[in-house]
Nucleic acid binder design. Structure first.
Lengths: 340, 340
DNA sequence: CTGAAAGCGCTTACAG
DNA sequence: CTGAAAGCGCTTACAG
């Protein structure tokens, strides 16, 4: 394989001059620079990544630590992943995707072997075991998902509290008086999936403010159970005129359930979901929904991480950035039907 | 950061002895070995990945080159990715996920910088531009997806020809005489998505063999267009009693379409899809389907790649492994309804 | 069974 | 504006 010595020889300069000509870290005479660049082109030279990492203590690689649970909605994860890998590349970084079950072990292994310059953690839980090892690591990190204690780590998430409030507020404006919220499975809550209760608490607060009755149930993550769950909910709360879905599987299942019951939205029932726009487009879920902002959150996390890498690691204070919820209107919100 | 010199000093041996004690590449007296192991534990030593890569020319990292097209079904990709990353880790490798648009440029960059020991290419097309650079690279590769010319590269794919045959055969057994195949969008074909015509050709051959009439249409990749497409197909071929779906979006859209038309499967129409079992479970698509075998294909590709890394690169002949299609029976296949 | 030393391919003070 | 040399942290012949 061609190395910088080959380039230097071909250009008739020393290895250090070749290196400087490429990095631009000191002034090089135009003639020499051109010779070096030509040699690079002709020989097809690319620096050896391992050698460069050893010399500079920089790898230009970020680690992306995912967590994939059977009872959460895996397909949604891809949006975060693509946002992160694409933005990282734009900023000059490659991405190591880490999916092993033991995130603590993986993080420690990768941090101490200095394979990466920084970490992005996905699907962060209320008490996330990966956070202390991350704080102990030499490399900085950024979180997608708000933990109970984000001290010392840049954090990005959808503002789920505001999302819950917004859902209720919008339906209140249209005149609804009773709503039902379908959340992720209770397992997700037990595991520390704070976004579930943050949205529920926000919805509850706003409902109380307006004197709206809010029913709250946990739905399954897969069909056909979630279909049964939805039918049960509709049976149990017949007076509810609006459905809030913080559960992607519920959004995917609801069209069939409504059709089977001879109901349509928004004529019979208003619906607001919370899922990514890409997901809605792929399945064309006909429901207005708060965008998960998966792509945006992933990109923001990478941007912050890289900016921290390019300055002194702790130069700037750590941020918690909660994205304001936005409803993509797909026409499933209207006034409730006349009282039966 | 603690290095092998620190370990050696703490154990009272030379750096080479410490290294050999850890690698087991030569016999070490038990006492010395224990001293070294204790030092490693106490100091929390992990070898520096860059230094090791430089010394050994091995990174223990694989590159996973994805291609994500807007008109194919992105969520399905995650299954391949997870199969690959998980199996790689089991075999001692981490995975660099590469998603940038220009796969040729990415492959060349990563190969020449020696960031990885091998490549897995996803979504390989009939004339895939990444194959020649892969053949030119120092590192071996494995493909998921069968190209027109797989010379010199290990290749894994579902046997789509057999899948098309199996779909038709199964419906023929039940007495169907006219079927409609809904494929991916025509754009996918134009881009070289050979699996589309391989399945269609297989279905066509088997249909001809049995004197079955086979209609073939290309469906959209997103709703609501795919819903319209399905309605158009049902209007246009009213005599067809079986639907073959080589299009995930069609499978996701069909339940609503059937419900809206007052049809049910299999009573009114038999349906066979082709998608991953996980996808079916997440959405509980009620249709029998040939499993994409995404997880299995990803794992097999990694296993072959790693075994090639562990022997001489070209020691064994290259394989083309086509996974035999298997139908997951979900009860959507039955005899056609009595002639209207 | 163990150690001293060379070498992997870079970058970057140091010296001119 | 440029070069000779040290050093990053490993592994592995070479020598004993």
């Amino acid at each position: 394989m061609v190395n910088i010595g080959d380039v230097a020889r071909a250009a008739g300069v020393s290895r250090s001059t070749a290196s400087y000509a490429l990095s631009g870290k000191r002034t090089i005479s135009p003639a020499v620079r051109e010779n070096v660049e030509r040699a690079v082109r002709e020989l097809g030279y690319t620096p050896n990544a391992g050698a460069r990492a050893l010399a500079t203590s920089r790898t230009n690689v970020l680690a992306l630590l995912g967590q994939f649970f059977d009872d959460e909605f895996a397909p949604a994860m891809l949006q975060y992943i693509l946002g992160i890998t694409n933005r990282a590349r734009e900023l000059g970084f490659d991405t190591l995707l880490v999916t092993e079950g033991d995130g603590v072990e993986a993080l420690t292994r990768i941090a101490t072997s200095r394979m990466v310059d920084g970490f992005v953690l996905l699907n962060v839980a209320e008490f996330d075991e990966r956070l202390d090892p991350l704080r102990a690591a030499q490399q900085p990190g950024a979180l997608v998902g708000l933990p109970g204690d984000a001290t010392g780590i840049d954090t990005f998430d959808l503002d789920f509290d505001a999302a819950g409030r917004l859902m209720v507020e919008r339906l209140h404006e249209m005149g609804h008086r009773e709503l039902t919220l379908v959340s992720q499975p209770e397992h997700v809550v037990e595991r520390g999936g704070a976004y579930v209760w943050r949205l529920a608490d926000g919805a509850r607060a706003k409902a109380d403010e307006h004197g709206i009755r809010l029913n709250h149930v946990f739905g399954s993550s897969h069909q056909p159970q979630i279909g049964d769950d939805l039918n049960a909910v509709l049976d149990r709360y017949p007076q509810a005129t609006g459905l809030l879905l913080n559960n992607e599987a519920a959004a995917a299942a609801l069209p069939s359930v409504l059709a089977a019951r001879g109901l349509s939205s928004p004529a019979d029932i208003s619906v607001i979901g919370r899922y990514s726009d890409e997901f809605a487009r792929t399945f064309s879920l006909p429901f207005s929904a708060i965008d998960s902002a998966a792509d945006l959150l992933g990109r923001r996390a990478v941007e912050q991480l890289v900016s921290r890498l390019r300055t002194a690691a702790d130069a700037s204070p750590h941020v918690i950035e909660l994205i304001a919820p936005v409803i993509d209107d797909r026409g499933s919100i209207a006034a409730p039907p006349p009282r039966r």
